[in-house]
Design a protein around this nucleic acid. Structure first.
Lengths: 186, 186
DNA sequence: TTCAGCTCGGTGATATGTCAACGATGGCCG
DNA sequence: CGGCCATCGTTGACATATCACCGAGCTGAA
């Protein structure tokens, strides 16, 4: 049997920094989000893709994939948000198994109210800490880590179909402010 | 009021890569850990510091700080693990408010059985994806992100007291294999 | 067509995490 | 000393996540 090396201090430090930074960053963001808008991180995670989707509607399956959630978790979360009037469920016309989730006016109001400060928080806690070059460097490393992890089912768009960072601006112009109105972006 | 810019595609990509890579990495690690050892990520998180602590005992407060958990969560988790015979609680002699958590023989057996494969998984999914230089680069960026986040209470060792990455090897020699026996490292 | 095998979404039981509050103690300062 | 405030750990109620399972509908090959 092969000798298995423990992690040396340098390696252990990276691994711990990875977990700690994520945990603390998320904790900071969610605390601030909840205080400023009454939305939890889970609420925002669902509302954000819906708010940029055509008509504010997405098929449940696609919503789940876009945020990397399993069905059961998503279904429970949608149920809770439905009770609060943030979203509604609809039938899926093209596939009778499926269902659609639609943003209500209240739901749209909530995300749009929450988004500016949340985006500002992401800038403050993450983006502003790094130069542009460092941002791209970090994204590259993370992409590589993500690239061949043993996926569950969860399909992100195939990278070959969505060649990413280069020339970002024209790929998703809707992510920038349009007509002077700050858009929902996360 | 200041204009708030949404995230452009480049920025949004970094932010998403950060969350996705973390979520998928952790999911992969925990699935594999649970399958191979019957320990959850939470179990391992507690057992690992205990296994390297002197006598296999830590004050609850210190254990909590070392893994960044709040007291309540830790207390519940310790209760569950106590029922399973992995740890025991003891009184704290030096401070009557406190309590100690002690690894049982079964607990030590469980971590030591789990560790080699878990460490291998961390290598496979994270460390091996990056060159040594990239590892240090990534650690540096993550440290910077973590550095001035609005902490909850959670005290990590003050960076000024524990000057990290440089000359890592001698700071924590116990993290490497000692006497040929693979040590618990995460 | 028919059926096996898959996808999709939902459900209830259970596991886990969070929150607010408590009792007990320690430490500080008058 | 005595009073005040902080820390420590726990608890129970609640919120959220996971797990195993179901029923319905799609799909493709026999």
């Amino acid at each position: 049997m092969a000798e298995i090396r423990g992690l040396d201090a340098r390696e252990a430090h990276l691994w711990q920094a990875y977990r700690d930074s994520y945990r603390e960053l998320l904790s900071a963001l969610e605390t601030r989000l909840l205080r400023n808008s009454g939305l939890s991180g889970a609420d925002y995670a669902l509302l954000q893709p819906l708010s940029t989707a055509d008509q504010g509607v997405l098929r449940t399956r696609d919503l789940g994939r876009s945020i990397g959630w399993e069905r059961s978790r998503l279904s429970h979360q949608v149920s809770r948000m439905e009770k609060r009037g943030l979203v509604t469920r609809e039938e899926c016309e093209s596939d009778a198994r499926g269902s659609m989730v639609r943003l209500t006016d209240a739901g749209r109001g909530a995300v749009e109210a929450a988004a500016p400060d949340h985006v500002d928080a992401v800038r403050t806690y993450l983006l502003d800490k790094l130069s542009r070059e460092e941002q791209d460097l970090l994204a590259g490393l993370l992409d590589r880590i993500l690239a061949d992890l043993p996926y569950r089912d969860l399909c992100r768009p195939d990278p070959s179909e969505v060649p990413y960072p280069q020339d970002a601006a024209e790929r998703a112009p809707e992510a920038a402010a349009v007509g002077g109105r700050p858009l929902i972006a996360q």
